[in-house]
Nucleic acid binder design. Structure first.
Lengths: 197, 197
DNA sequence: CGCTCGTTTGAGAGGACTCAAGGTAGGTGG
DNA sequence: CCACCTACCTTGAGTCCTCTCAAACGAGCG
């Protein structure tokens, strides 16, 4: 929980319903607003010409996103899209700065949140260092399991397309690699569902 | 300038001379210290088995590095190595927290510094999205020119190996791509020096 | 002058990507 | 309850191009 919802409302924050697949902002847009999820899911991603995309972050209930460009007054380097029906509170830029000013403990909160994001991004770099798709996939599966606290009997809750978008691989490559890994006993596939320990 | 040097000294910070190529910490080490460069250069990078490395950040006079793992109490995801003879002030973890506690404006400073780092890392992702080496190299050259404020008649002050380490490509691939680009007039190479506008 | 580090070039192999087409599963509506 | 639809998964064939390995050249510095 980045900022207490009562505070957001007090300062004039407006909650809005967002349908799955709707966009909050686009890569290159100027950053005018603070966004915080009441519930739902949002992903931040960059994209190339053609459909190739790279997921830079996923956010869920209570989390905020897109603050760094807002603080810096720079255009968004990513696009934000809802991956579920969601409810989002939006705040004007100056209001966000007012809250930061009035609540030092919130500022401190963001410091730690940002530290985590930097850390995650640095860890993710392991994916780009991996030379083979198998290594990349193992890295992302490990990260996912840790982050989402999945136990060993739980299927990985992401589609092959999503794994492709996390790793920058193509969907077919992910599928072929997963098949090979399952043949070699490194993972288990049951009814298209992925199990990784 | 992250933290005023007088403050660092007052709180017991110790300046140390570091020779080029010396290591400050290694990937996987626990984070016990705050590091700030008085002068010199340090790079943070991750590495694979084999010599493949990926530069995650470069730092120079007055900048600090490696704070996120320190704040979070997590092991370093990168290795830190001096790329020049340098002078570095080191501080114990608790002392760093004391300074943060005593100087709210320093805390605020870090908030913005972190925001910039997140922004830079997000922008860098464009490199991983690029499918061809040429695209990756153009992206990194553009970023370098902007960041280092190079004018158009200035050669790129990085070796081909370094460009390889920034982009995750192999040195030979960088060389061959640069040669092709120069043949196509996209860049100029004079006496092995690179010019890009 | 000789060392060291970076640059350059070549040949060859492996493998990711592209394009195309068909299969599967879960949800919706009649 | 079944047919349909959509989104996701799967497979195949072929091309391209990056990586690997090896060897030699160039430049800067003591």
């Amino acid at each position: 929980m980045q900022i207490n919802q009562d505070i957001l409302i007090t300062y004039g924050g407006i909650a809005k319903k967002i349908k799955k697949n709707e966009y909050l902002f686009w890569e290159g847009d100027p950053a005018y607003h603070y966004y915080q999820l009441v519930e739902g899911n949002v992903k931040l991603y960059s994209t190339n010409e053609s459909d190739k995309e790279l997921v830079q972050g996923t956010f869920t209930d209570g989390q905020s996103f897109g603050e760094p460009p807002l603080l810096l007054g720079l255009p968004y380097p990513c696009t934000a899209q809802a991956t579920k029906d969601s409810i989002i509170i939006r705040l004007r830029r100056e209001t966000f700065f007012n809250i930061l000013h009035d609540f030092p403990e919130i500022k401190e909160n963001f410091l730690y949140t940002f530290a985590e994001r930097i850390y995650t991004k640095a860890s993710f770099a392991q994916i780009w260092l991996a030379r083979t798709p198998e290594e990349k996939i193992i890295r992302i599966l490990t990260i996912i399991k840790e982050r989402d606290n999945l136990n060993n009997n739980c299927p990985i809750p992401y589609t092959r397309q999503e794994i492709a978008h996390f790793t920058g691989l193509r969907t077919e490559t992910v599928i072929r690699t997963l098949r090979r890994m399952s043949e070699e006993g490194k993972i288990v596939i049951k009814k298209h569902k992925l199990f990784y320990n």
